[in-house]
Design a protein around this nucleic acid. Structure first.
Lengths: 335, 335
DNA sequence: TGGAAATACGTGAACGTTCACGTGCTGCAT
DNA sequence: ATGCAGCACGTGAACGTTCACGTATTTCCA
């Protein structure tokens, strides 16, 4: 058996170690480390030097305990690999950084975790939570106690702050566009997720019914690859489709691939509209017409809401704690 | 002037508040909250109930102080919006979560921040750092003191742990492929970044010289849009290019657009090879041949290295603290 | 009915900082 | 000589937990 050397778990140097080494008191070390006045230049330098040699870095816990918390924001994301989320996360991080907060992320897509697992992990570490939680928002809120929770893209708000999207409006925009492009046989490809998918699906179905459109509905996992397969078999079953609305842009990219595989020209043979407006849409061929969302604005709104909830300017569960954002139709080549 | 109500900055409830409300001691509250033995079921329930009512959640600082740190890992990312990084970040988060660590991210792309700003922000909050820092790794290490630092894609390791890539090998693979595709006039589009770009550029130039290839070099910012413009003007200046190697896949996607704009067929008129192997490459048309990197493996390697540095199994600055990964040529349609 | 063991709780100390003071010393004007 | 200001530094207390004990009260068997 080779040595199971467990390494230098030696006890980190504390402020007292530095003080002893320098022959001064705690407070003088504090003054040196934090560039406070009331200390001579020579002492300051000597202490800093010694601190570096001992590998001293102040305990964030002790500091936090005595100074009061620097806010830390939990960010629960289903899957950072899905290009929708980085755009959003990036904006949250930027906005939080501007406020001097820091952001603890949890990606619960891998492994069998649900959103609530992420909340459980983040809970003890953070002062507030923002997340795309497929799970019930009130569950999350109860795990966080009085601390602010903002849930995105969830059907109906309970006790938590909520940012949702006006899918009825979005669906109407998309269907109008497809109709004016003379599409007759329209399909909607939904994702097989819990919350958002059904919401979007219902909104699209309702809008179609309202507009007298007979809608074919398909479903796939939330990935380009899965969408490609789903559209492939959709085309096999329902040959005559000439308009396709897709759950999101990533899946729409897969749909474009499937249409190309089947020899259908886009938009001539079949128009395609995606959803959410991620940068990817401009890089595929043909470029994707989409119901665009300003994802940076979504992130900003989420952090703003947290800020307002934390400061008490907005009451959790009140009308003001729910925000509905609208998509915007961006015309490119695919429809 | 309307009320500038500053909200309930009231002082968070502490364990003593709960104890008082329940008529028990601190310790009993601790037992109730942490599901420890030595407490009756009825008391436990009553305390938990009261805690919820008072909105009590234990201070992570006090807890951390007395229990010893739960490891938290800083992750410094230049730009989450660039699809290279989420794939990496996602893997780091997953790997860290498995170890029970949590991850604090900082995206320093927005604003004028350099990597060192991110290190300064993260430094006080974390026990170790992983990052794509354009800045000098030894600067970062000195800001972190004895705490582990792992820098990615940086030319030469100093005091910090280092994960870099064998660009000589990668360049050779790419140029061989282009040569065997009968490309005569080959260009390399570099990014205008500090560290990595020059490294890659030098490697490509060296490999070209070694293979007797005369190389045209262009440069652009690290985005699809900028690359599109750069390739547009490259084609205007140097009409005869029939092979193009690009700094990364995102820029390669822009290059594909520019070639299409100019009426060049890919790969017939001009072959294109990207770098890093992000999922986007499979979604563009034609699908992108690329020097692929297993980004999840990169994240795994980074967290492993941090783990080893932290436990002392590997000494910072030693040979073992440097790891060189190799790209792999993935043939798709564009070359 | 004695006494040991189990149960349910309480108390001092410690974690590592910073804050709000307090103290000694030097220099300088009166 | 006296007083007073300013500088450089030190000390008790506090932040909110948990840990390692200690202590009543009850239980249960011989």
């Amino acid at each position: 058996m080779t040595s199971s050397y467990s390494g230098p778990q030696v006890r980190r140097a504390t402020i007292l170690d530095v003080a002893a080494a320098a022959g001064v008191s705690r407070q003088t070390v504090t003054r040196a480390m934090n560039d406070m006045p009331g200390i001579s230049a020579s002492t300051r330098e000597r202490v800093q030097q010694l601190a570096a040699e001992l590998g001293y870095s102040p305990s964030r816990f002790a500091k936090g305990l005595v100074q009061g918390a620097r806010t830390s924001l939990g960010l629960a994301i289903p899957d950072l690999t899905n290009p929708y989320f980085p755009a959003f996360a990036s904006s949250v991080v930027e906005e939080a950084t501007q406020r001097g907060w820091n952001v603890v992320v949890d990606d619960f897509g891998h492994g069998s975790g649900s959103g609530l697992d992420a909340v459980a992990r983040l809970g003890p570490q953070v002062d507030a939570l923002v997340g795309y939680l497929g799970a019930s928002s009130s569950e999350a809120q109860s795990m966080m106690g009085r601390r602010p929770v903002v849930v995105l893209d969830y059907p109906s708000g309970q006790s938590a702050g909520l940012i949702s999207f006006d899918y009825a409006y979005a669906a109407q925009l998309a269907l109008e566009r497809l109709k004016s492009a003379r599409c007759r046989r329209i399909a909607y490809l939904d994702a097989d997720l819990e919350g958002p998918a059904t919401t979007r699906g219902l909104a699209v179905a309702a809008a179609a019914a309202g507009a007298g459109i007979q809608l074919t509905v398909g479903q796939s996992a939330d990935s380009a690859h899965a969408a490609r397969e789903a559209v492939r078999s959709l085309l096999a079953d329902e040959g005559g489709i000439d308009g396709l609305l897709v759950f999101n842009d990533l899946m729409a990219a897969g749909a474009l691939k499937a249409l190309r595989d089947a020899g259908r020209r886009v938009p001539e043979d079949c128009a395609v509209i995606g959803m959410d407006g991620i940068p990817l849409g401009e890089l595929v061929t043909p470029e994707l017409t989409t119901l665009s969302l300003d994802l940076r604005a979504v992130g900003r709104a989420a952090v703003d809401l947290v800020d307002n909830l934390m400061s008490g300017r907005i009451q959790a569960g009140s009308r003001d704690s729910e925000l509905v954002l609208k998509h915007q139709l961006v015309l490119r080549q695919s429809a």
